[in-house]
Simulated assay, not measured.
Amino acid sequence: MSLAGKLDRPATKAALEALPDTMRGEIIDGDLYAFPRPWSHRRGLSVEPQDG
C-alpha cells in the first residue's frame, strides 16, 4: 500500500519544479516520484543552524 495519495490527473512539470531543493523527482507514466537528494548534493545548500 502506498503512503501517497493517487491523483486523478497526471503530474505536471510545474509539480516537478515545485519540489524543494533537498528533493529530486521524475515523472514516469504521468506519476510524480520524489526522493530525498543524496547528502553529497545537499552540501552546497545554505542551511541556517537551529538554536536548540
Rank of each mutant, 00 (worst) to 15 (best):
R9T: 03
W39E: 15
D21R: 05
L3W: 02
P10W: 07
R24I: 15
L7A: 15
L32D: 01
L45Y: 08
D8M: 10
G52M: 10
T12C: 02
R37K: 11
H41L: 13
A11C: 08
I28G: 04
R42E: 08
L7F: 10
A18P: 04
R9S: 00
D29F: 01
A18R: 01
E48W: 10
P36Y: 07
M23C: 05
H41E: 14
L45R: 12
H41C: 01
I28W: 00
K6M: 03
F35M: 06
T22V: 07
M23Q: 11
L32K: 01
L19R: 05
T12D: 04
P36C: 09
A34H: 02
P38M: 06
L45G: 05
H41R: 11
D8Q: 13
D51L: 14
L16T: 04
G5C: 09
H41M: 09
R24C: 03
A14D: 14
R43I: 13
P36I: 10
R24A: 11
R37H: 00
S2A: 06
V47H: 12
L3T: 08
F35C: 07
R9Q: 04
R43Y: 08
T12I: 06
D31I: 11
S40G: 06
D29G: 11
H41I: 00
A11W: 01
P10A: 10
M1K: 15
L19Y: 00
R24Y: 07
L32H: 04
G44L: 07
S2Q: 06
A18Q: 07
L7V: 06
E48A: 15
E26T: 08
P38G: 07
G25I: 02
A11N: 04
L32P: 03
R43S: 11
P10Q: 12
P49L: 09
A14G: 10
D29E: 15
L19M: 13
